[in-house]
Nucleic acid binder design. Sequence first.
DNA 1: AAGGATCGGGCATACGTATTCTCGATTTAT
DNA 2: ATAAATCGAGAATACGTATGCCCGATCCTT
Lengths: 340, 340
Amino acid sequence: MARRPTSLDIAQLAGVSQPTVSRALRGVKTVNPQTRARIEAIARQLNYAVDKNASSLRSQATHTLALLFFEEAAEEDGAINPFFLSMLGSITRASAKAGYDLLISFQQLSGDWHVDYQDSHKADGIILLGYGDYDTYRVRLDHLAEQGSHVVRWGAVGTGPGAITVGSDNRDGGAQATAHLISQGRRRIAFLGTADSRYPEIEERYRGYCAALASAGLVRDETLRVDAITLEDAGEDAIAELSRRGAGYDAIFAASDSIAIGAMRALAAAGRSVPGDVAIVGFDDIPSASLTSPPLSTVAQDARQAGEVLVATLLSRLRGEAVTPAPLATRLVVRASSGG
Amino acid sequence: MARRPTSLDIAQLAGVSQPTVSRALRGVKTVNPQTRARIEAIARQLNYAVDKNASSLRSQATHTLALLFFEEAAEEDGAINPFFLSMLGSITRASAKAGYDLLISFQQLSGDWHVDYQDSHKADGIILLGYGDYDTYRVRLDHLAEQGSHVVRWGAVGTGPGAITVGSDNRDGGAQATAHLISQGRRRIAFLGTADSRYPEIEERYRGYCAALASAGLVRDETLRVDAITLEDAGEDAIAELSRRGAGYDAIFAASDSIAIGAMRALAAAGRSVPGDVAIVGFDDIPSASLTSPPLSTVAQDARQAGEVLVATLLSRLRGEAVTPAPLATRLVVRASSGG
DNA sequence: AAGGATCGGGCATACGTATTCTCGATTTAT
DNA sequence: ATAAATCGAGAATACGTATGCCCGATCCTT
C-alpha cells in the first residue's frame, strides 16, 4: 500500500460504504457498535488519518485557530514581548485540549489578516495579541465585533467592543503597585508609561496610579509622568527625561517590566541606588523580573489563565454564545526593588 | 452578496470559466494579461480569497509547516526552553517570507506526531525543537530520514541522520568557553551537564570542554563533572552535589544558561562570590543572561540564523534537494561572571 | 495560400470527506 | 397479524479549487 489510505479503502476492507466509515470514526450514534469496532480496528491497523483538508472543505470548519502577534512595523528582528510569549504555552495547550490546531503568525497592523485567515478558511477564529496603536485598528475591530466575527483580543477590558476583549484588571493592578509604594513611605512616585488613549491598558494602569495617590491624600504631580512605551530603551530614556525636568522622585511605577528594567539600568548608571534612593515596581512579572538586581517587584498578570480564558472565550463565540469575560485579577509580587 | 465569493462567482462576473480564474490568480502564464487584469480587479473588489482547504485538497500541498516543541512529559505548565522560544520569531518570519503558514504544537515524545501532521495533510513538513531523550525517538527519525520524509530537527549535527539535523557547533562552543576560563587563570573547571549519549548536543559541549583542557595541558577530573539537565533547579542541585563530593573548583562551565543561573543562585546562597571564588560561563545566551548579577558570560547561539536555516533546510527537502547544512558558528560573549 | 506553430481558454474531472435523502430490514404497538 | 415506528446503512452529491486534455483562432513560414 504505497498510497495513503482513504476512508474508501477502509470501507472496502470492512465491507461497508464510505459514508459509514466517516460516521463510524466520528462517533455518529447511528452506527452499529460492532460495525464501528471493525472499522476502527482496520483504521488503526492501516494508520489511517482523516484528511484535514477534505474534512474541512466539506464541513466548512477547520478546527484551527489563528494566533496573531501584532508588532509595530519597525522591529523586524525584534524580540517578542516577553509577556505575550509567556501566554503562548497556555494558549497552545488550551487549543490542543479543545481539539484545535493553532496557526501562528506575526502581522503588521495594516495587514489584511481578517481576509487572510478567516475568509480563506485557514482558521475558524482569531486571537489577537499585541500592544500597539489601538486607534488604527479600532474601527475594524468594532466592525468585526458587530458581525459577531470570531475574533478575540488581549487588551483593556471595557474599552471598545467588550465582547471580544479579554484582559487584566489594569486599574486595580496600578492601584496595588502605587499603594504598595506609598506604604513603603514613598511620596514622590513617578509613572513611566503613557496616558495616551491609544494604549488603553496603559491608560488604565495610570488611572489606578492616580486613584491610589488620591486615596492616600497625595497630590499628583504631572511632571512625574513620563511617556514610555514597552521597550527597555524607553525606560532608559524616561529616566533621562526625569532628570532633564529636574523632578525629584523617590519611587517609580513602570507600566511594564521592560520599562522598569531599562529604568533600573539607567539608575545604576547614574549612581542612584535601588531601592535606597528610588523604589521601583513594574508590571507583568516576566521571567526576567526575578533576575534583576535587586529583583524587581511587579504586578503579576497570570499568563496561564490569560491564555486559557482567551481560548475559552473564542470557542464560546464559535459556538455562538455571547460571553463577556470578566477582567482577570492581578497580584502584587513584592521583591527587593521596592524596599521594605 | 452574503456568501463568500468563489472562483466561480468571479468567473461569471468576468465572463470566463472557473479554471481560467484559477490560472489567472496563480500567475499561470498562459492567461492573457488583459484577462488576468480584469479577473484580478474583480477578485480584489469582491475581497476574494482562495479557499485554503479546497486548494490544498486539490493540489495535495498545504503550504503549511508544523513546528513541534517536544517536552518531557512532566512539565505540564512548564516554561518553554527560552532558547527555543527565541528561535520562534525567526522561524515564523522565515516561513511567512516563503509563503508558508506555521502550525505550532507541544508534543509528547511518545506521540504520533508524524501521522498527525503529515499523514493528515495538515502540513507539508515538520520542524522539531526540543532537547530530550534522543534515544527514544532516534529510531523513528532514522526511519523518516530514509524515506526522505519532510522533517528537520534542531540538534547535534553529525549524530544520527545528518540530513535532517541543523545545529550549532557545540564542540567548538564548549572549547571556547573552557579556553576562556583557562585564560582567566582558572584551573579547576567543573562541567555541569551530562556526557550521556542520549543528549548529543550536551555531549558535544563536554567534548569541547575536554579538548580545551587537554590542549592546555590540564588533567581532567571526573569528580568535576555533574549531571544536570536544562532546568534551573538542576543547576542548584549540581552545586549541592559538588560540595557533597568535596570537590574544589574555581570555575564552572554550564551546558546551558538555565543551569548556570541555577548554579549562581546556589552559589550566592552558599556565600561564594562570582566571579571572585567561582567564574562561570553558560551556553545559549538567552535574554535573561545579561540580567543576572553579575551578568552571565555565555556561548551565544545565533537564534535568528538558526531559525532561518531550519526553515531553509526544510524547504529544500520539500523541493527534493538533499542539502546537508553545516554546523552554525557559536560566539563567546564575555560578561562579568567569568572574571576578567 | 495552405499547413503547421502558438496562444488562450473551455470541458471534464479529481481531491477525500461529510451530509441529505432514501430504503430495506427489524422491532414495536395495536 | 398488520400497520407503524425504529434502526442501520447505501446512493448520490456537495464543498471549491487545480489540472490534464483538447480545440478554436491567430500567427508565421515557405
